[in-house]
Design a protein around this nucleic acid. Structure first.
Length: 445
RNA sequence: GCCGGCGUAGCUCAGCGGUGGAGCAUCCGGCUGUUAACCGGACGGUCGCCGGUUCGAAUCCGGUCGCCGGCGCCA
């Protein structure tokens, strides 16, 4: 590359702040003057005319740079600048049905802020290459739309919790308790102790309900499971809530209200994102309470009738989940799993065989969105179940204290944010629901 | 952890025992309306790595490393 193309022009003519975003430019009228800045998305040239498609956070617009309409330096820059070069320009809006989007800018000035090197991502890409270049692939329209959808989802979730008397809290992600059984937790040296990256904030949220009553948190959760599926990340954003004075029934109501609220509001607030990603509005419109509830026992019978070789005490796998949601437009709850299939902290039902829990399964085979339960208040039974897993009881004494000092019936749930996004955005892999996916074989970039 | 697949130019792939190819990208030239533009030319390789078979290996065999997909486990 010649030295002259590496000059930083930023202090040249565009020192004012009167730029407009591309979506705004696309709504302007014929003849209006605009200044925009962004990155080169596509470029084509034909002798004395350059077609430069420019991208910013709001969209793309085609720009025409003609040889006799701009300075020689600007024209040359427009022909030299490669994809992803950062640029700023001033021009006149023209309506033209040959332009993508029906409008384009005829440049008066065209400045390159940074001449990009050859952008490695081109026409054909493999999954591996795109993951290796994730830091650059994030600029793609698909990932941009997903990231916007995720941000809007979080905004809506926060609004719902605010309106429903929940306090947002900030629990730790460093713990000595490997809550779901030590084998699947990442361990590390914490000074002189062995500690774990949190798999759930649940026990910490339980401690907080005795002052705040209804709490929620958003934290990373870590799973050291060597899962190789399209539904698993080793690090994911875990949305958890815990509610005092709430039983399993009301817990399910809270969950279906929350998920429905997210769908109804995304429908209104994320039109462009949903359309780009191929999720139809009417598919979200039907997501309203109540969601269907089916007990583990009934689900088991349904599966057996369909020819699955499952018996009482087996957990459901991906093929089972797919069958259970077959034909369902809304998520469903599967309730009352056998004690031995679930965690030590879930409350045992009066039948002494099942726990008061519910898994929310997404339609279309996207799998478990939420796992929730009413919490046990029986210290002896919890100790028994922990010991059966081989856990160190000492680390759980503080948790048992919560039952010793004014315990109340309470429930809570955990939602995998990326699972929710994967379902709503119709993604074929969960890795695209997060900017820097962490998987068994990938921790970079 | 189990099963299957793939590693060849910067990228996507073809070649499957006899002198390593194409498309895209990049560079040079041409073109005043392109739509992942087009036309001509150039540049570009430890054929993942190690070993074996063979007169000869990208190609056949063994091992190894990396990646992808599915199952299990989970959100």
């Amino acid at each position: 590359m010649e030295k002259q193309w590496q000059v930083f022009y930023y202090d040249s003519i565009f020192h004012t702040m009167d730029y407009c975003k591309i979506d705004e430019a696309l709504s302007k009228k014929e003849g209006e003057k605009v200044k925009i800045r962004g990155w080169i998305y596509r470029r084509r040239s034909a002798g004395k005319i350059s077609f430069i498609v420019i991208r910013d956070s709001t969209g793309i617009i085609q720009t025409i740079v003609e040889k006799d309409k701009v300075s020689e330096k600007d024209f040359k820059a427009s022909q030299k600048a490669l994809i992803e070069s950062s640029v700023e320009l001033e021009g006149i809006i023209h309506e033209d049905n040959r332009a993508p989007g029906g409008r384009e800018i005829h440049a008066i000035n065209f400045r390159v802020i940074n001449f990009a090197d050859d952008f490695p991502i081109t026409e054909y890409q493999s999954v591996e290459f795109l993951l290796d270049n994730r830091h650059l692939w994030l600029r793609s329209r698909k990932l941009t739309e997903i990231m916007k959808l995720k941000a809007k989802t979080l905004r809506i979730i926060r609004r719902w919790f605010d309106e429903n008397d929940f306090y947002e809290v900030t629990p730790t992600v460093i713990t000595l308790n490997a809550a779901e059984g030590g084998a699947t937790a990442f361990s590390f040296k914490y000074f002189d102790q062995k500690a774990y990256l949190s798999q759930t904030a649940q026990m910490y949220l339980e401690a907080l309900i005795f002052s705040l009553e209804r709490v929620w948190s958003l934290t990373p959760s870590f799973r050291a499971e060597k899962s190789r599926t399209r539904k698993h990340l080793t690090e994911y954003w875990h949305l958890e809530a815990e509610e005092a004075w709430v039983d399993n029934e009301e817990n399910m109501k809270i969950q279906e209200e929350l998920v429905s609220y997210v769908c109804q509001n995304l429908m209104k607030e994320a039109n462009n994102e949903l359309e780009f990603l191929g999720r139809r509005k009417d598919e979200l419109k039907v997501i309203e309470p109540p969601f269907k509830r089916i007990s583990y026992e009934k689900a088991l019978k349904k599966l057996q009738k369909k020819g699955f070789d499952v018996k009482w005490g087996d957990d459901f796998g991906a093929p089972h989940e797919r069958v259970l949601v077959e034909g369902e437009e809304k998520p469903i709850f599967v309730t009352n799993f056998p004690i031995e299939t679930k965690a030590f902290y879930m409350k045992i039902s009066s039948d002494k065989k099942t726990v008061k829990c519910a898994d929310m399964l997404a339609p279309e085979g996207y799998g478990e969105l939420i796992g929730g339960s009413e919490r046990s208040e029986d210290i002896d039974s919890m100790i028994k179940r922990l010991k059966a897993q081989g856990a160190n009881i000492e680390n759980y004494q503080w948790y048992f204290d919560l039952r010793r000092y004014g315990s109340v019936p309470h429930s809570g749930f955990g939602l995998g944010l990326e699972r929710l996004i994967m379902w709503i955005a119709k993604l074929d892999h969960i890795r695209d629901a997060t900017p820097f996916p962490r998987m068994v074989r990938r921790a970079s970039p």
